[in-house]
Amino acid sequence: MKKKDLKSEKDDIEKNNNEEDNEKDNEEDNEEDKDTYLLKLYVAGKTPNCLKAFANLQEICKKHLGDQYKIEVIDLLENPKLAKGDQIIAIPTLVRKLPTPIKKIIGNLADEERVLVGLDIKKSIH
């Protein structure tokens, strides 16, 4: 996806509209093929914010990613050592492990628009 963006930047402005349309098509094809979103949601127990974050995330994924996603919930109360790997400071934190690069969103994911921006999903829906 990122590569496509860079490519389109290099292209002429005239071609831009067509290119974007193509990109959208390609993107959908790719997702069906291999672009599964691997998402890790770090929580600490069942606090209201953590529950909210999980509910919000499920809703957004269903709506925008079809079945091309996998959510893993990690409860740091049960296993605090896992916080180090992804450098978790804030709770809840959503980490997009795949596709790369890694992205992080903190908070209860209440704002759908921002979650989409944070996960880089928005562009494909554009």
């Binding site: 914010n49 109360l77 804030a90 890694i102 992205k103 992080k104 209440a110």
Partner: peptide, 20 residues
Amino acid sequence: SEIEETGEYNLEGLFLRLES
């Protein structure tokens, strides 16, 4: 640069890491 914020959060991760 790699963190987006949306909605409420706390720094429980920091506390848990400190504690461990």
